[in-house]
Write a protein that binds this DNA or RNA. Structure first.
Lengths: 112, 112
DNA sequence: GTAACATACAACCAAATGGTTGTATGTGAG
DNA sequence: CTCACATACAACCATTTGGTTGTATGTTAC
């Protein structure tokens, strides 16, 4: 079990996990509805073990969780982690916006 | 020069680039104001060449651009690429939201 | 109970990543 | 002109990543 806070290291894992088309697709499917690992694996042209590893990467990043149900493991998407990633991107954009508004202030001052 | 569209491959590069604390810090600094590569390198406990490589990764992901000024290269943050990454995260969250609203509809129907 | 299914996990491999040092080239200051 | 600075880039190395196959274990169906 991994503690799911957005530390520097955890942030690395989240973005790293999203930097792969297969994993992004897995996230989509797990957000859409309930799926088992083998259910996911059926969609990709790679071994079951490979898909299992992708799910493990997403789980370590807290982008999905797994719960046992019978002999299957149900994989659930974790929208909260996506939201945290969005917050980080927004904070970066805000830095830029603040700069632009400082620039506007400067221009407003000098143009008078 | 890299064509900056958000293809699957380009998306990989953007998230991969953001999956490193040093690179995220570089993005912050380049959004805050103008900086040269050596100006950036001064802040990190690694060789100039290593920082150069980080900037190259960010440039390939279109998260920054470099322009020559005298003997320096000025590195600029590209907020547009950040916004595109945000759009992708939002689209993932929307998938989840749609599922929830379908679930609400279902409950509303059966509870009558 | 046994066969088939779902998962877990180790061992292995090629390629990519993230750092290093060394060398070459272009630019600016004096 | 020359020296110092800013950059570029190649070669090298250890570690991580993303895939494979093989084996073991737990669960369900019959």
């Amino acid at each position: 079990m991994v503690v799911c806070e957005l530390s520097e290291e955890q942030t690395n894992k989240v973005f790293r996990a999203l930097a792969d088309a297969t994993r992004r697709d897995i996230v989509r499917r797990t957000l859409r509805g309930e799926v088992s690992v083998s259910g996911l694996a059926a969609h990709y042209d790679m071994s079951f073990a490979a898909v299992q590893k992708h799910v493990a990467v997403l789980e370590a990043a807290c982008l999905v969780t797994k719960i046992a149900r019978g002999r299957e493991r149900i994989v659930r998407g974790q929208p909260e982690t996506l939201r945290q990633a969005q917050v980080l991107l927004t904070s970066l954009e805000d830095i830029w916006r603040q700069r632009i508004s400082r620039l506007d202030d400067f221009l407003a001052e000098t143009e008078n």
